[in-house]
Write a protein that binds this DNA or RNA. Structure first.
Length: 422
RNA sequence: CGGGGUAUGGCGCAGUCUGGUAGCGCACUCGCUUUGGGAGCGAGUGGUCGUAAGUUCGAAUCUUACUACCCCGACCA
């Protein structure tokens, strides 16, 4: 990609509307633009990151045998009547009418649609267990959208649903998801905690949340030095009790309670038979007994994860992406006015690799080019300028780390090594 | 929904108290000079001051209503 042609509108001043660092940086680096409260355009840079996360999630879910589908965003009221949630859901369920005055809603989640899908198309227990997922835009008319895409009304979510003939089988798949989620978060280089949680409005028995640790997190987690597991402080608190009152108390699994803040990016539930019962999904088992299948549901906030990653990876200069997640990995900064075509030559050479590379061919000075690069968080800058002209050397300048001068023929080796180290 | 705040060119702001017909920085366009850490000089483009009504000879400024957006709380990936 050429910097002069790519749509990356940057903002120098801190946008007045943005409170937290990830929101500010996503606006400033040209990743997103607001359309309405909690509703955003994703521009090229933001979209690349979104897609990268999406693909990591997709790979790990495919690895545990989940199959990808795509369900509609607009859902008919009838399905929500079956599960009795049309009345239960509050105003965050955005209701709309079609031209025939029939009721629909914008899907905030898809238990109804998928249960209906499975009910109509699975006829035998021999087809279970079955796990389906989608990566799709959700709409929840949040009481108060905030922090940019961290809590948008429209957001990208991976939601998966599993169906089983018994709770043991459900538990097995639940554990598969649990480890898949850990792998996903590790691959995305996020520092996180698995957290015991309240299963909330979606309903069901057992649930755990995955929290990315960040100062600006909206959730307060109780942790202990002697346990891997954290607990959402909500679970430990009486009504109107302040979380800080928990500090120093006994942690349920030993040790003393400490508090940290987290951003909930994933949630896995064992729903049990709630939806299969209400929506009358049933199959005969091997003994000809009618059984309402056990269900699990598993969400990951893809768009929220973009913001969460930035919360963990930024400094005074801008975003400092992990090498794998950076929308642009290598930036070739041309300071030669392209007099000899050398920058384009290096750029073309790198472009043959799997790394996403940009050539900053704009008619700008070094200062602006490097500041922009630092703002959008490109891990590696390759500077073609006076060192090449004078000494035949090119400068490699990592976003974090020390600069170096290398010979042109060493470049490919340097890049390979640079991106191997984590 | 309760509490707090904001709305003036693309962005950040001043002007509002004390009414007199809109300004600054950045960005953008053109020219010349610059050229390794957000360049300098000069010349320009761009705003019916969130919307509507009212007061007044005259409203960005005063009054009323409305709308949008942000922050704190309850909801959630």
């Amino acid at each position: 990609m050429l910097a002069s042609k790519t749509f990356i509108p940057k903002i120098k001043d801190i946008p007045q509307d943005a409170e937290i660092i990830s929101h500010q940086l996503m606006l400033r680096s040209g990743m997103i633009r607001k359309v309405a409260s909690g509703i955003y355009n994703w521009l090229p840079l933001g979209l690349i990151v979104l897609k990268k996360i999406e693909n990591v999630v997709r790979e790990e879910l495919n690895n545990i045998g989940a199959q990808e589908i795509f369900m509609p965003m607009v859902q008919p009221k009838e399905l929500w009547d079956e599960s009795n949630r049309w009345g239960k859901f509050g105003p965050e369920l955005l209701r709309i009418k079609d031209r025939h005055d029939r009721d629909f809603c914008l899907g905030p989640t898809h238990e109804e649609v998928i249960t209906d899908l499975v009910k109509n198309n699975i006829n035998s227990y021999k087809s279970l267990p079955l796990t389906l997922y989608q990566i799709q835009t959700k709409f929840r008319d949040e009481i108060r959208p905030r922090y940019g895409v961290m809590r948008g009304r429209e957001f990208l979510m991976k939601d998966a649903y599993s169906f089983h003939m018994n709770s043991e089988c459900l538990n097995q798949t639940y554990q598969d998801f649990r480890s898949a989620y850990k792998k996903i978060l590790e691959r995305l280089e996020l520092e996180f905690k698995v957290v015991k949680a309240d299963s909330g409005a979606i309903g069901g028995d057992k649930s755990e949340e995955f929290h990315v640790l960040a100062e600006n997190g909206e959730d307060v987690l109780a942790v202990s030095d002697s346990s891997e597991i954290a607990i959402n402080s909500e679970l430990l608190l009486e009504k109107d009790q302040d979380p800080s009152s928990l500090v120093g108390q006994e942690f349920p699994e030993g040790g003393k309670i400490q508090l940290i803040k987290g951003i909930e990016v994933g949630h896995i539930f064992q729903l049990g038979q709630v939806y299969s019962e209400s929506m009358k999904l049933s199959l005969q088992d091997a003994n000809s007994n009618e059984v309402n299948p056990y269900m699990g549901c598993y969400g990951i906030g893809i768009s929220r994860m973009v913001a969460a990653s930035i919360e963990q990876n930024n400094d005074e200069f801008g975003i400092a992406w992990p090498k794998g997640l950076a929308p642009i990995q290598i930036n070739v900064i041309d300071l030669t006015d392209n007099l000899d075509g050398s920058a384009i030559k290096f750029y073309n050479e790198i472009e043959k690799s799997d790394f996403r590379v940009m050539l900053d061919d704009r008619d700008e000075r070094f200062g602006k080019k490097i500041k922009d690069s630092e703002l959008i968080g490109i891990p590696l800058n390759i500077i073609i300028g006076k060192s090449l002209k004078n000494d035949g050397l090119i400068e490699v300048s990592p976003r974090r780390g020390t600069k170096d001068l290398i010979k042109p023929e060493e470049l490919n080796g340097y890049i390979a090594k640079f991106f191997q180290e984590s």
